[in-house]
């Protein structure tokens, strides 16, 4: 009975657009749903540093190197904001890292694609961060207060990520034939995986219904994806590149683009561990974590020393 009252009160708050804070009562399933989503989001920020990090030492100019370094550093910071946000729900950093490393937690499948050319750095900033921004703007209105506030902070920082990527693509597409071809190839490889970032169709999405009812998510996967398709089409045109979706067509009646179908077999294959880089990404994370162990140990023993001196 008490439980039912709590449930009702909780849902009333959600319906009235009142944010839920860490010490408020919440249904266990809401807490679990949030922990899953926020930790997955955090893992994506952190694993997402790898494909771009691959090009830091080979950036074509000091300016580009400084920009890329600053962007990758931001993503590490986003990971931190999000892990801390998840921790307000009573899970530890260690549990989350373990789940990432043993494969029980997911991260965005886009980061399992390799970065083969310099243009990929541009395509990622423009398309991958662009898709992430569409999603994160919507999540600023999520019902969990700490998550909502970290989205506000992250969105502010994201703004340069997409612009530097597009600027890079613009430079290449106004460059030599070879540079233009490189930009086109990159767009071809990253366009569809970027659309997949919004997740399966609403009809196939396992968590969508409860996420919408609890306002953890505010817009559905398909609605967000449509927004991204619509905003990206004119940007591709401006670059003077070919649109990778041959079925893309403006629909006057709907006021939006009709588009071709995503290769869902590829989506599920990569999500379930069989992308180009799945094993490498997680292994690299494990290695980095192991190689950093001496730093954590040194800091702990320094603390110990300081304490025993003070005593």
């Amino acid at each position: 009975m008490v439980e039912i009252d709590q449930q009702q009160k909780f849902q009333n708050k959600i319906d009235a657009e009142i944010k839920i804070e860490p010490k408020d009562w919440m249904p266990e399933a809401y807490r679990k749903n949030l922990i899953r989503q926020i930790s997955q989001h955090a893992h994506s920020e952190v694993i997402g540093m790898q494909p771009e990090g691959n090009w830091i030492t080979r950036a074509p100019s000091l300016r580009r190197k400084a920009i890329l370094l600053a962007k990758v550093q931001d993503e590490g910071g986003h990971g931190l904001y999000l892990y801390s946000t998840a921790e307000t729900l009573g899970i530890t950093r260690e549990e989350m890292i373990n789940a990432l490393q043993d494969g029980s937690a997911r991260y965005a499948s886009i980061f399992n694609y390799p970065t083969q050319t310099w243009a990929d750095v541009g395509a990622i900033g423009w398309l991958v961060d662009g898709a992430a921004i569409v999603n994160q703007i919507s999540l600023q209105r999520t019902s969990y207060g700490p998550y909502s506030r970290s989205m506000v902070r992250i969105c502010k920082e994201e703004s340069f990520h997409q612009r530097q990527g597009y600027e890079l693509m613009l430079t290449l597409s106004r460059g030599s034939e070879a540079q233009k071809a490189m930009a086109q190839d990159s767009l071809n490889r990253f366009y569809w995986p970027s659309l997949m970032m919004f997740g399966p169709h609403d009809t196939e999405s396992a968590h969508s219904a409860s996420s919408m009812k609890w306002k953890v998510k505010r817009e559905t996967n398909d609605d967000l994806r449509q927004k991204f398709i619509d905003q990206t089409a004119p940007q591709i045109e401006f670059l003077g590149l070919q649109h990778p979706d041959k079925d893309l067509k403006w629909n006057d009646e709907k006021g939006q683009f009709d588009s071709g179908e995503i290769n869902w077999d590829e989506f599920w294959r990569v999500i379930n561990g069989d992308g180009h880089c799945n094993r490498q990404r997680v292994q690299h994370h494990i290695n980095a974590h192991k190689e950093g162990a001496w730093v954590r140990e040194a800091m702990a023993s320094y603390q110990q020393k300081k304490k025993s001196k003070a005593a």
């Binding site: 300016r63 400084a66 920009i67 600053a70 931001d74 662009g130 703004s159 340069f160 997409q162 612009r163 530097q164 597009y166 600027e167 613009l170 905003q231 004119p234 940007q235 401006f238």
Partner: peptide, 19 residues
Amino acid sequence: DKPYRLATYYQLPDEVNNM
């Protein structure tokens, strides 16, 4: 000394400036 962390550092043509 890192102005490139700001969105305004990147000048884009008007047609695509709203990102």
